[in-house]
Design a binder for these strands. Structure first.
Lengths: 130, 130
DNA sequence: GTCATCTATATGAATAAAACATATAATAGA
DNA sequence: TCTATTATATGTTTTATTCATATAGATGAC
C-alpha cells in the first residue's frame, strides 16, 4: 500500500504490491543448492535466468546464505582455485533439504489459499465462467 | 527467517514463514465490501469466519480502511442509528472495484509463480509422480 | 605499470508492511 | 456504578527486503 502525501499528484498509487513475493527467493536458493553446490555469484546468475526470480539484490543474497549457514541449512567453504577472487561455495545440508521440503509444503498451502480467494472472487464477478 | 541469538536454545527456528501472506487481507476486504457495505467490526467478524483470513489485527484493519479511503477505493459515513457506539460504514467505489480486479489478477500471477516453483521442486524430488 | 573492468563477497542504513500494545468512548446489562 | 461489549483509533516495534556503498583479487588494455 502506498503512503504518498496528498500533494503528491500524478503518482502511480493504487496498484497491487510489486512483483516480489516474500519468502520466495529462499526456497529457490535451497532448491538450486539441492541440485549442486554453488557460490553466491553463480546463484545470482541462475536466479537471473529465471523470470520468476531475476533481479535479486546481492546484499540480500549473501546475507540470506550466511543466515542459512547460521541456521545449519547450508555449509560453506572457500574455493581459491581458478581465476578471480575466492568464492565461498555453499552446500546444502540434510537439515537444509528437510527445510526445503517444509517450505515447499508451505508454498503449496499458500497456493491453495490464493486459489480460494480467486474462487470467491470469481463467483462474485464471473459467476458464469466455467 | 529467524534471527535469534545463538544462546537462545530450544527455539523453533528454521520453519517457513508464518501463516500470513502479505497483501492478502486487502483484496479480501475489498471483495467483502463489493458484496455489501460494512463497518470495521463487521468486517472483522466476516474475516474471522474464514479460516484463511481469521485473526486480523484491529489496528491493521482500521488503518487499512482509512488508507483505502485516502486512496479513493472506499468512502465512509457515520452510522449513529442502532445500539452501541457509532459505526463508520465503508462502501466500495468504482475505483475500488477496479483495484480489486487488478489485485485479483496479481494474485493469479502470484499463484502461477508458486506453481512454477512447485513444479521445479517436484521434478527434482518427485520425478515419478503423475 | 597503472588504470579500468569484471568477478565476488560483504555491510550499514533506509523503507514499508504488518504486528504488538494500548487508548478512547458509547452503550447495555448486572 | 461497575463491568463487559461494541467499535474505532493511534503510538511503537519488529522484520523482511531494498538501497547504497565498500572491499578486494584478478584480468586485460594501453
Amino acid at each position: 500500500m502506498c503512503h504518498h502525501d496528498s500533494h503528491d499528484s500524478n503518482h502511480n498509487c493504487c496498484s497491487p504490491p510489486s512483483g516480489r513475493i516474500r519468502g520466495f527467493i529462499q526456497p529457490w536458493l535451497l532448491l538450486l543448492l539441492s541440485e549442486e553446490a554453488a557460490h553466491g555469484y553463480q546463484l545470482t546468475d541462475k536466479l537471473n535466468r529465471n523470470e520468476d526470480t531475476k533481479g535479486i539484490d546481492p546484499g540480500f543474497l549473501y546475507r540470506t546464505l550466511r543466515q542459512f549457514e547460521e541456521d545449519g541449512l547450508v555449509k560453506s567453504s572457500w574455493d581459491t582455485e581458478g581465476s578471480g577472487p575466492a568464492r565461498r561455495i555453499y552446500e546444502i545440508t540434510p537439515d537444509g533439504v528437510e527445510f526445503l521440503h517444509a517450505w515447499a509444503e508451505h508454498i503449496q498451502n499458500t497456493r491453495k489459499r490464493l486459489g480460494r480467494f480467486l474462487k470467491a472472487y470469481s463467483s462474485r464477478f464471473k459467476p458464469h465462467e466455467t
